[in-house]
């Protein structure tokens, strides 16, 4: 069994994802502003936004049902639960006993499902548009995501995140060429799951092409704050997964203050670097036509297929 200190660190890891996630969003917004020759808001701006939104009153359409009201809470609870399964700066999470990578994906799907229902619930035409597009993306991203998960799980012996990250931290990347292909697929999947630029423009609120924003267009006040926050948590979880599976340098495998400190600092640095890279990439490309998106997802599927072939070599 796990000791009290380990459980405490596990709780801290979960809370760190939840509390640091708006910071990552802030870093991405700042990077995008700087690449567009703007000064941009401070990287703490998402925190201010969330505090401001919580103080505001909420307007709910009288045509909406209970689904519209519970959706932000289900979103937040599902993603915050998923956050506790992710090993962040220690190679294992004590909550790994309760769930593995597939459960995390399932929680993502639950949150997404209720967001789509809420988009349809208020019966505005924007919500319906956003929901149908989101359904198309998620149906296409799912096979790519599962193939990638299977590559990682087969290589490191199990879908349990603690097993995977512990094995990754003990191994080198070199003997596993299939992980290169898995990393390519995973990067495209992260862009798609979090609605970054070739898939969906996160900065727009007034376009016919928006996807995620179209679904949550009717929200205001506390509900909007929860939705934005859970979106940030999802981004942080996926970035932490990418970093810990494909670039595990500096992660701590024992509970001493020094290694945990190094693990935490290197993790924050790596995630920030990845966020800056994604934001920079977003500045250089335009949003793709909706029916070209499957081309990009197909690249992810093909890449993970080749990874599978290389594993069974």
């Amino acid at each position: 069994m796990y000791s009290i200190a380990e459980i405490l660190i596990g709780v801290i890891q979960g809370l760190a994802i939840i509390l640091l996630s708006p910071l990552i969003t802030g870093i991405m917004q700042k990077t995008k502003a700087r690449t567009q020759k703007r000064i941009g808001a401070t990287i703490l701006q998402p925190y201010y936004d969330i505090i401001k939104l919580i103080k505001k009153d909420e307007v709910v359409s009288d045509q909406s049902s209970w689904i519209f009201k519970v959706c932000p809470w289900i979103n937040f609870v599902a993603l915050a639960t998923a956050a506790f399964f992710i090993p962040l700066f220690l190679t294992y999470s004590p909550f790994g006993l309760a769930g593995d990578l597939l459960l995390v994906v399932g929680l993502f799907a639950l949150a997404r499902f209720f967001t789509m229902l809420a988009g349809l619930d208020v019966a505005s035409s924007f919500g319906g548009l956003g929901s149908s597009r989101e359904m198309m993306f998620s149906a296409l991203l799912e096979p790519a995501l599962f193939l990638t998960i299977f590559i990682v799980a087969l290589t490191y012996g199990g879908t349990n995140l603690s097993t995977i990250v512990a094995a990754v931290a003990g191994a080198t990347l070199l003997p596993h060429p299939q992980l290169i292909f898995a990393a390519i697929a995973m990067f495209i999947i992260v862009l798609g799951e979090t609605g970054r630029l070739p898939f969906d423009n996160p900065a727009t609120h007034l376009e016919l092409t928006m996807v995620h924003e179209a679904m949550v267009l009717e929200y205001s006040g506390k509900s909007l704050a929860l939705i934005e926050w859970s979106q940030a948590i999802k981004l942080m979880i996926l970035l932490a997964l990418v970093v810990n599976i494909f670039a595990p340098w500096g992660i701590s495998s024992s509970i001493t203050v020094a290694t945990l400190g190094i693990g935490f600092i290197s993790l924050v640095a790596k995630i920030s670097l990845l966020a800056v890279i994604i934001a920079y990439l977003e500045s250089t490309i335009a949003k793709w036509r909706l029916f070209r998106i499957p081309d990009l997802i197909t690249i992810a599927i093909a890449s993970s297929m080749i990874g599978m072939v290389l594993y069974y070599l």
């Binding site: 081309d295 197909t298 599927i301 093909a302 890449s303 297929m305 072939v309 290389l310």
Partner: peptide, 17 residues
């Protein structure tokens, strides 16, 4: 189409292995 040809190319890689 482009997406089908990407999948076919992946299958061709599998075939050559």
């Amino acid at each position: 189409s482009l997406r089908t040809s990407i999948i076919i190319s992946a299958l061709l890689v599998a075939l050559s292995y």
